[in-house]
Every structure is written in C-alpha cells, then in structure tokens.
C-alpha cells in the first residue's frame, strides 16, 4: 500500500497494489487508468482571438503556471491537441474556422469556453451584427467560465473541473453507444 500513499493528491493512481513476495500486483479498472492518464496530460491548442487570450497567457506565465496541472504542452496545430480553450470573441467570419479546427482535432477532444463572449456574446450581445452569441452554436462545450476576462485562477479552476469530468467518463461504454 505504500505506493498509493506517496501518490496522494490530484494525481492519486486509481487502483490498489497487493504486495507479494517479489513486488506487487496492481488491480484496477481500465476505464480508470485511461481517464487518469488522459486527465493529467491535456494538451491545449494555442487558440486565442482577443482579450481573453492575454489572461490565458498569464495563466501559462510565471505566477499562475498551468503546467502544475499538466497543461503546459500548448500545441500550435489542432492535430496534436486534446483541448481547445476558446479564448475570445468568435465572430461570424471566424466561426467556420473554429469549426474546422475542432473537426481536425483527434478524439477524445474537449472544449473550454473562456469568457463572457464565448458563453453568450458577452459585452457584444446587443446591437452587434457580427458576433456569434455563444460559441456553443458552433462546437460543443464542456466547461464554461464566466468573466470578462476570467481571472487566471478561474481558468485554472475550469481546467481542474474538466479533469474531474474526464475522470468520471466511461470510455468503453461511450464507444459501444457510438457503434449503435
């Protein structure tokens, strides 16, 4: 049981070690291991359209440092990313581009909607002709963070929430449902 103790905290390994004379036997569920691995190495896509992207950069920067939660490998291409943080307003002209980026990402993929703009159009809700009123008109969203812009701490919170969500996923069940 010693291994388990040293791994306590957000990285706790989902399973038990039964000690035997020469080592140990690990008993766990495949679902749990997959989710454990996935939730702790989410690679976000570098995607920022406006103001919120600066707070996203602050989160990556020295003080807030999102690498503590396994997010530091920001990718510039959607083909290597697991997570898209929509940081900033999406306008009509950008919406098809966002859709294409999302389609190019390999499964499983997750979306965080950062800021009021991506939730509802935010400060640009009234009297604008060009803003998409909520990014969920274009792509499905997993976690929403309100704020204009949300603080880096809020973004970190949303990331942890997403990790929790992933930990409760049932990978194989989902696959069977897809087939049906």
């Amino acid at each position: 049981m010693e291994i388990n103790k040293s791994m306590e905290g957000p990285l706790t390994f989902p399973g038990q070690v039964h000690e035997t004379a020469d080592g140990g036997i690990l008993v766990t569920k495949l679902d749990d291991v997959i989710n454990w691995a996935r939730s702790n190495s989410l690679w976000p896509l570098v995607f920022g359209t406006s103001c919120c992207a600066i707070e996203m950069m602050s989160t990556a920067g020295a003080k807030h440092d999102w690498s503590r939660f396994g997010f530091e490998v920001a990718r510039a291409t959607p083909r290597q990313a697991d997570l898209i943080i929509v940081a900033g307003t999406i306008v009509m002209k950008m919406a098809p581009v966002l859709k294409r980026l999302y389609d190019q990402m390999p499964e499983p993929k997750y979306v965080i909607a950062m800021g009021a703009c991506t939730i509802s159009g935010g400060p640009f809700f009234y009297n604008t002709y060009s803003v998409v009123k909520g990014v969920d008109h274009v792509i499905p969203v997993d976690v929403y963070i309100p704020g204009c812009p949300p603080r880096p701490e809020a973004l970190l919170h949303s990331m942890i929430t997403l990790q929790e969500k992933i930990k409760n996923e049932q990978y194989f069940k989902k696959k069977i449902e897809d087939v049906r």
């Binding site: 359209t49 406006s50 306008v91 640009f124 009234y126 009297n127 604008t128 060009s130 803003v131």
Partner: peptide, 15 residues
Amino acid sequence: LGFIHRSIEKMSESL
C-alpha cells in the same frame, strides 16, 4: 482582415 471584427463602432452608436 475581419476575423475579429466585433462591430464596436456600430455598437457605440446605440450606447
């Protein structure tokens, strides 16, 4: 241009 055109000028006319 235009991928982040948020019509701020037009919006301001009604504020």
